[in-house]
Design a protein around this nucleic acid. Sequence first.
DNA 1: CCTATTTGTGAGCACTGCTCACCTTATAGG
DNA 2: CCTATAAGGTGAGCAGTGCTCACAAATAGG
Lengths: 232, 232
Amino acid sequence: MQETAGAIRTRARAALRRAILDAALDQLATTGADGLSVRQVARQVGLASSAIYRYVPSRDALLTELILAGYDQLGEAAEQAEAGCDRGDLRGRFAATARAVRSWGAAHPHHYALLYGSPVPGYAAPEETAGPASRVPLVLSGILRDAAVAGAPPPPRPGPEPDSGILEPEVLTTVLAGVAPRAATEAVLVWASLFGVVSFELFGHFVGSVADADRFFEAALGSLMDRLALPG
Amino acid sequence: MQETAGAIRTRARAALRRAILDAALDQLATTGADGLSVRQVARQVGLASSAIYRYVPSRDALLTELILAGYDQLGEAAEQAEAGCDRGDLRGRFAATARAVRSWGAAHPHHYALLYGSPVPGYAAPEETAGPASRVPLVLSGILRDAAVAGAPPPPRPGPEPDSGILEPEVLTTVLAGVAPRAATEAVLVWASLFGVVSFELFGHFVGSVADADRFFEAALGSLMDRLALPG
DNA sequence: CCTATTTGTGAGCACTGCTCACCTTATAGG
DNA sequence: CCTATAAGGTGAGCAGTGCTCACAAATAGG
């Protein structure tokens, strides 16, 4: 089996890489992104600090990888929650997705902060995070598209659309196809509002004003769904 | 003038303290909170690094002070913008306040991120930030109270209020006095939505979906004001 | 078997926050 | 006026960080 000779090598490498990432995830959960240290990760894995750089080019790259993993975890949670709903229950699907976001954030506050808090590595998120980052918006837009076909199709008026040009045309023709530009703009606002509410709660901005966070979130949910004109 | 002998000493001390804070503000604006270094601040001010600790107990305390200053700057900007509006123009007052928040954030992204991004020092904001942090919400709630007296007073129904218990009672009886619990809850949601939109824009989450940030913000403004049932 | 590549090591550089002993200076009190 | 005292400033130093590099061991392929 000279074939597996090389294979076992790459497998061991992949396993160690995974161990490094898991250790980094541990550190992130306990100390936060700021406290994450390459040397500490190395200690936890049982390697010299310099050996880490055989697997990860830099601390920032490690953080980027954690960001990617976070978006994937969150997207997975949202997709699963939404998939467990009756397809016709549009409000139920939206609520389940939103609750999944809040639950994941509450369970992994430091990880959530890494995704939606201050952008720590440089100032623009790396290109490769765009894909996983759009999983939650994709779930939400899927609900909206189903709502659009259920409701009255928007009559194509002659002349320029009143709200066209606000969103990227590519978004309006793909993930939000069939949704009127006006409603699509509203949907983006609802999206940002949802994460605004979750962030405010997790980051402590509701201390002193919101007494019952659970009930507030449910009330916010209802309001946001009304905004989207989701039937139910 | 033995009186000024001591006074000049404390004045010099205050001036140096201010210089340290200004240098820290500079650093924050250019490198962000993560890159802010006590030693760099010391170099900029022209002191040994150890001397800084005669004026500021720790790096975290310095950051806390910057947070305080940020809330004050932002609150000041919001108050001034709102004060320049016709008192009867409720929508204009709200829009001016919201635009001031966005403008300040765009002008000081790192400082904004320090306030509304990931909570970096520990996990709970220090007590003393609560005051300055509430300046913007105070402006917004002032508009809502004016709207409440302008509109129909909420009929006090017998039995438990449907939405009572969600917000802190103290908020409902002071800054939001006269506003129905239902509307007050909605107002908190609008507040979080506003900062959610600004944060999403500043933190790059709109890249790929929002094409015209200015127009989107104006559209969002209109929608949020509709939600508050502001007349106009 | 022998070479070449990968993987891991430890020392080391420049930097960080923070403390401490020390020294100077100016204030305040007798 | 003169001196004890307290404040302000310094530099060395500790423990930690990200990261690089020359080197050694282990493993791969020819």
